[in-house]
Design a protein around this nucleic acid. Structure first.
Lengths: 207, 207, 207, 207
DNA sequence: AATGAATGAGCCTTCATTCAT
DNA sequence: GATGAATGAAGGCTCATTCAT
């Protein structure tokens, strides 16, 4: 006679994070509306009822997913800034590669895709995302560009535009690969692109 | 006996296009799953039943929306290519500005956003989109880059990467504005950005 | 080959009343919370979805049931008042018997039972019920008592109390029979009781 | 090693009564179905699990609530009867006032309301209630009426009917006040009504 | 061709009940 | 004895889809 497995375990502390992780994956993959709580629960290894022990409803879970996932993002973004000596271009390069790295190893790209898709359905969340993540991330790159210009290292371009020029391509490549890597014959790796991107930023296309 | 006024008009030819237009707007705004057919019908000025006269089901409508909207895209994209004399940079500039123009005046940006969001839910559609639109659009810019390099006008960069560098930023700025223009304090106009983008592509950031 | 029955009929005008009637029966029998909309629908010969074509939700249906059922009640109650000649006692008797009759042939008793049970769960509805039905019904009997006293026909008793003395017993007997007729060995018919009640009201118990 | 304080106290004997009391209050207020066991537990100062230590399920708790609450009812009812000398009307008056007193100071009225509402959902319980409480209570009043008639003190009325005439109004006034006291502008106190009721019973309305 | 009443499957949510701690 | 995390069945509600008119 073998020991029967207990039907479930008490994991009060671990549950929310597990559910959030499962939900994140599914939300990113299918979108908010197309994700069923049953699937979230199954993926988290619990039943639907358990989800409701920790989140008031589906929307609340979505918000938690976004917020909880963005917190490490924030911390990572902040931690990138630090002491720097030497040319600003070197720092820019370093930052870009670090960011590309995060884009590959975290859910950052997925979250971006998700927010792009659901922004109009969750306006306050979109606002939160823009304020807390986007604006801050831009600030980091904008600072570098501004200082580089002040140092005479960069051309005196419009900083806001340049910031977009620095961030948008990398983000797009990552978001794109999330959605189309399976069917795009010319898939491009984020890591490879990051290096190329920096080169293009510096030298431009002209011979 | 007098001829009774018909309760509705025969609009056989116009109906599908009207429904598709309404559906496109709503799909782009809310996503596929969050869009109700009732709302599509209302926006198209018909009733739900009428939608089913022209489309087998919601998914079928979605596919039609994508396909029908992409046809003019295709045609516009193709028509951009033609005889060209003078420097390739000039053609690139012209193409970029024309594309930016289309991004502003058509649903191209919206479709991109929609496809990013729903690609994993509609794989064949994603494949269709990539094959018919993305690859062709890339081809246009890739050609220019290749020829510019051959002519010694551009640096001998990786063409596939450079194509991304040319297209991704503009697309991202447009997609982003669709989702976040309401809550992004540093909104950037696509037209302005296009000019800046070309300048950066040519000269890079270095002083 | 026989003609296949149509799966359903369009009965837009009749539906709400049918649903209300079915709901009334079930609410009275089981109470609000214990009544499932599925059962209401089945009893009304429709499906659950149809209920939602006409009522926003279960609570809304409940309110409609109460209101719609009470309107005829009101009208009947009001219509009892009219021209009267002769002793006030005769009018009182007439009114009581008419009311007893209505109690037997309408859902009045059931509604009362229902409101007693659900008043605290639906405060505004309870208020509506008291204001629109109870107060008016009392007014009718209070008038008769007041005039009877003024005419010297009745003793100068407290009118409000006397009104209760006139109405409460009949109502209780009816409500009681709704709930306990199946298990009460000494069930009393409302019709019989009404006659007895009038007699007691007039003569009292004393020899 | 010191003796750790136990997290909870053994209250084996007190627990069931506390839970029953809490449940009674909520059942009366909201009805059986609308009362959540969570709320019962909270009101009793325990957790949901504890309820199941003492009661097999919600229905079982309900039955216990009714039965346990009816036991004191029974005892009180029985204790009212005793030796009596003097006119039967005096005894009747005494009994009515005593009963009114119990109606005000116990849950009798609430139980009645509850049984009226749930009788059809709990037939055996309704039977139990009728047999053990209602029939016995009636017997008390019926006895007085019978003896009063035999003594020539009361008119020779139908005893069963008269019993209803004696009990129903008081019960109705109490039940009513439970449900509608908050919204009935002409609320009537049970104590006041009891005195009036006896007067009416004796003298009737006629001048 | 068009309508919109009706359907019914499916999802979110609640809550009585169980059981690991 | 008590807890409360976890379950799972049930029910309210939505909405894509059908079909009588």
């Amino acid at each position: 006679m073998d020991t029967p497995q207990p039907r479930w375990q008490r994991r009060k502390d671990a549950r929310p994070a597990e559910i959030i992780e499962a939900a994140l994956t599914l939300f990113i993959d299918r979108g908010f509306a197309a994700t069923r709580l049953d699937d979230v629960a199954k993926q988290a290894g619990v039943t639907k009822g358990t989800v409701y022990l920790y989140f008031a409803n589906k929307e609340d879970l979505f918000k938690a997913v976004i917020r909880e996932t963005l917190v490490p993002e924030l911390e990572m973004a902040e931690s990138m800034i630090g002491e720097h000596k030497g040319p600003w271009a070197d720092l820019l390069r370093e930052m870009l590669l670090a960011w590309a790295n995060r884009l590959m190893n975290s859910q950052t790209g997925g979250i971006t895709k998700l927010m792009i898709a659901e922004a109009s359905n969750f306006p306050e969340l979109a606002q939160f995302y823009v304020n807390e993540i986007v604006v801050r991330s831009r600030r980091i790159f904008a600072d570098i560009i501004e200082r580089g210009i002040a140092a005479g290292e960069f051309r005196p371009v419009d900083v806001m535009m340049a910031t977009r020029a620095v961030t948008a391509p990398l983000l797009m490549v990552k978001v794109w690969s999330r959605s189309f890597s399976a069917c795009d014959p010319d898939a491009v790796s984020v890591a490879d692109y990051a290096a190329f991107h920096f080169d293009m930023l510096m030298q431009g296309l002209k011979a």
